[in-house]
Nucleic acid binder design. Sequence first.
DNA 1: AGCATAGTCAACCATACAGTTCAGTGTCAA
DNA 2: TTGACACTGAACTGTATGGTTGACTATGCT
Lengths: 104, 104
Amino acid sequence: MPDLDRTFAALSDNTRRAIVARLAGGEAPLSDLAEPFAMSLTAVSKHVRVLSDAGLVRITKRGRTRYCTLEATPMKDAADWLEDYRTFWEGQLESLARYLEEEN
Amino acid sequence: MPDLDRTFAALSDNTRRAIVARLAGGEAPLSDLAEPFAMSLTAVSKHVRVLSDAGLVRITKRGRTRYCTLEATPMKDAADWLEDYRTFWEGQLESLARYLEEEN
DNA sequence: AGCATAGTCAACCATACAGTTCAGTGTCAA
DNA sequence: TTGACACTGAACTGTATGGTTGACTATGCT
């Protein structure tokens, strides 16, 4: 699953997760995306390219600006992968709860 | 959220996801974990360290073998982060479904 | 035509990562 | 006590990542 590789890798950076969060609110031009960050536009552009390579963001050029939109599917795939372990961690956290319970 | 950074980074490798999958079935010694992979034990040991640094795996030494167990919480955090976007991608995939519907 | 805006490209730097090999440590078993 | 087993550590290689700057392209505005 090299797709999952790239999806998780894309999400392993705080800046990129912030970009994703921002794009969940709707499409935005690159320069708008870059504005909140204390780094060059080039750097943000690279981050967006990583997201785009991972298929999480689609870039459409209108005039001189690039509009970015969030792409759902890869994130769903990642969530689905994690979801398979939900029962596991729910069980584990429940055990923890029981353990803490008994400790009192 | 540097924790999420490390969690997602840890999950961005196929080998490590396979290790996680394996550990979901119960604790296992390092050498058992390494066995299915066409790489050195050292390499697997490094992978496990990455998982351990990210808090996804706990290593307990009994005798000369290291037993690895899956640790729930960080994966839950990652899943929770992704879960926030579920409504988003469900909406988007629904739009896609409607679009495909209308195309016929 | 001329300038500002939006962004890419190329080159560079430092750090991290995935993998190797080889040598070493610690533990169990005969 | 000798040897096998289960690792870890150190050193090295190649490649990726996150960031910079400076030059360039392309579009829009006046």
